[in-house]
């Protein structure tokens, strides 16, 4: 993974702006972001709250649309996509992991994975996904019977079961204690390494940046700097 230029960009963002209107007030969440994300990368988007990092992630994932600028996903111009196309994009290409897991409480761990594998073309076997996150034994438990870390790992299994090209994680450890958080990060690292899934994690926790290939610092709606880690730390080596 030395010659990035030789690899195709998964995402190519140019001049992305996002303006929210809250009544009369105008909030400029993104003020012109240029960014290329490459296949197989593990990228951490680092920024304080309100920096615009979540907005960027949401736009990348097709949950939100840019006010200005252009975004390509592997040659598809997402800026021009309508709701149905964005739905398909999310369905085929993106796996999401959220701070609050967003599992369906009425479905078991396995079924929470199945609900995604049912709607995509070439999914991973649901049990296989659970095995990857070390939750095979807990497959028949309902969310209420799982700890926070376990719930987040189910969420990761759900996200990767569709064999997505990219995994987008919004503060995946934000609601967890550090020990459990590291377990979750370990799973993310393993997925990235074994499946080659482009993984983007946003966090305000600078420690986590140490495990990334690249660290993108965001502040005030702009990219402040992009830094490449010469030495990636394993999640087990992290602590906060």
């Amino acid at each position: 993974m030395t010659d990035y230029a030789a690899e195709k960009a998964v995402f190519r963002a140019r001049g992305i702006e996002r303006v929210y209107h809250m009544g009369d007030a105008e909030i400029r969440a993104l003020r012109g972001v240029d960014l290329d994300l490459w296949a197989g990368e593990f990228v951490v988007l680092l920024g304080a709250s309100g920096s615009g990092k979540s907005t960027l992630l949401n736009i990348l994932g097709g949950l939100d649309k840019a006010t200005a600028g252009e975004l390509w996903y592997r040659g598809q111009n997402l800026t021009l996509a309508d709701d149905a196309q964005l739905t398909l994009f999310r369905r085929r290409s993106v796996g999401f992991v959220f701070q609050f897991y967003n599992l369906i409480p009425s479905l078991t761990a396995l079924e929470n994975v199945q609900i995604v594998t049912e709607i995509v073309d070439q999914p991973m076997a649901p049990l296989e996904a659970l095995r990857l996150v070390n939750l095979y034994e807990r497959r028949d438990h309902f969310p209420a019977q799982l700890s926070g870390g376990e719930q987040q790992r189910v969420a990761i299994a759900r996200a990767i079961a569709k064999n997505p090209a990219v995994l987008l994680c919004d503060e995946p450890t934000g609601a967890l204690d550090s020990k459990t958080g590291i377990l979750v990060l370990d799973v993310l690292e393993k997925i990235n390494r074994e499946l080659g899934t482009t993984t983007i994690v946003i966090t305000h926790n600078a420690t986590i940046a140490n495990m990334a290939d690249r660290v993108v610092r965001i502040g005030d709606g702009r990219i402040q700097d992009i830094q490449r880690n010469s030495h990636k730390q394993a999640p087990r080596e992290l602590s906060w």
């Binding site: 739905t87 999401f96 369906i104 609900i115």
Partner: peptide, 9 residues
């Protein structure tokens, strides 16, 4: 959540 996971309307 389902919409995010790629379920259509």
């Amino acid at each position: 959540s389902l919409r995010v996971l790629g379920f259509s309307q």
